[in-house]
């Protein structure tokens, strides 16, 4: 028996006048997965996330969070979902502790359960030293941590994070990424949109690529990398004879796009692994001293660039 995905999006569409912000988008996110939601500006990421967060209504299609439809049972879906919008507006004259207490009360947490939960998220997000600080007086990084703490208060199974790393410095980004990994390890599903693809590639299990409101590709990063890479990309590091190795490669069958970059030789190879092994043997036979010979996986940036056209709507 297969269990239902934590988040299931089916044929979601949303138009604003003549502009189709989201068109027939479908994807799934499982428990414990971090899914990157990427696309150019205006691709429909935020609209999709707002629909998932029950803040907007699709023209067609539906999404289920923990089995609850965002259309028909938005309250139940919201209990399973934590939404972190792209901006956090703090309250004036309210310290961090009181803000969290307020939000915990708003989520219906009572008595000691509330106290314990607040202590737990404060500890997890590293806010212990900032409890008496006004929410308006936090740095961007700490404000994002507070925003995340607020999102975690009701222990949602799915986190929908819209550009959470925007504006953070490198250290804050790394710390934030670590927090997300811990959350995923705890079994939470995470759908995260970001323009920082290098950040996503290090933490995501899969991606949803969307452009002009339409789904371009979805799945695990490895699977998509294999899909978008029609040919094997090979990287060769040699101790000596780099030019000789280049000349040799240019004469070989199945070898394309030979180039030298940063003292290394790269090329694409469109035959099987046996042929590749023979190629390596011939290269060594030519007297080239090879210290590294390996496949190169497509990065998230390459996937993104190859699958999208950069068209805006």
């Amino acid at each position: 028996m297969t269990s239902k995905p934590l988040l299931s999006v089916r044929s979601l569409s949303r138009s604003f006048g003549k502009v189709k912000a989201v068109s027939d988008v479908s994807f799934d996110v499982e428990r414990g997965q971090i899914f990157g939601f990427i696309g150019p500006n205006g691709a429909g990421k935020t609209t999709t996330m707002r629909i998932l967060a029950t803040l907007d209504l699709p023209d067609a299609g539906d999404a289920w969070v923990g089995g609850h439809s965002v259309l028909e049972a938005p309250r139940l879906a919201c209990q399973q979902l934590g939404f972190m919008a792209d901006r956090f507006i703090p309250y004036a004259n309210l310290p961090v502790a009181e803000f969290l207490d307020f939000m915990a009360r708003a989520y219906g947490l009572r008595g000691r359960t509330r106290t314990r939960t607040i202590a737990s998220v404060v500890d997890f997000c590293g806010l212990d030293e900032f409890l008496s600080r006004p929410t308006t007086g936090l740095s961007k990084g700490m404000a994002q941590r507070l925003h995340l703490a607020k999102t975690l208060l009701h222990d949602p199974g799915l986190l929908v994070l819209d550009e959470p790393a925007a504006g953070l410095d490198p250290r804050a980004r790394v710390e934030f990424r670590d927090l997300l990994r811990e959350l995923a390890a705890a079994g939470k599903g995470i759908l995260i949109s970001s323009h920082l693809l290098s950040e996503l590639s290090e933490s995501c299990d899969g991606v949803v690529v969307i452009e002009q409101g339409q789904l371009v590709v979805t799945g695990s990063i490895d699977d998509i990398a294999r899909q978008v890479q029609a040919h094997n990309a090979i990287l060769v590091r040699v101790q000596s004879g780099l030019e000789a190795a280049e000349r040799f490669m240019l004469t070989q069958p199945h070898v394309r796009e030979v180039l030298i970059r940063d003292g290394r030789l790269g090329f694409e190879f469109d035959a099987d692994d046996d042929a590749l092994a023979e190629l390596l043997a011939r290269l060594i036979g030519e007297g080239v001293r090879v210290s590294e010979f390996r496949h190169v996986e497509a990065s998230l940036e390459e996937i993104f660039l190859r699958t999208t056209d950069g068209r805006l709507q």
Partner: peptide, 9 residues
């Protein structure tokens, strides 16, 4: 827009 977040609670 904080009211939207409150309404999700």
């Amino acid at each position: 827009g904080t009211v939207e977040h409150l309404l999700m609670s």
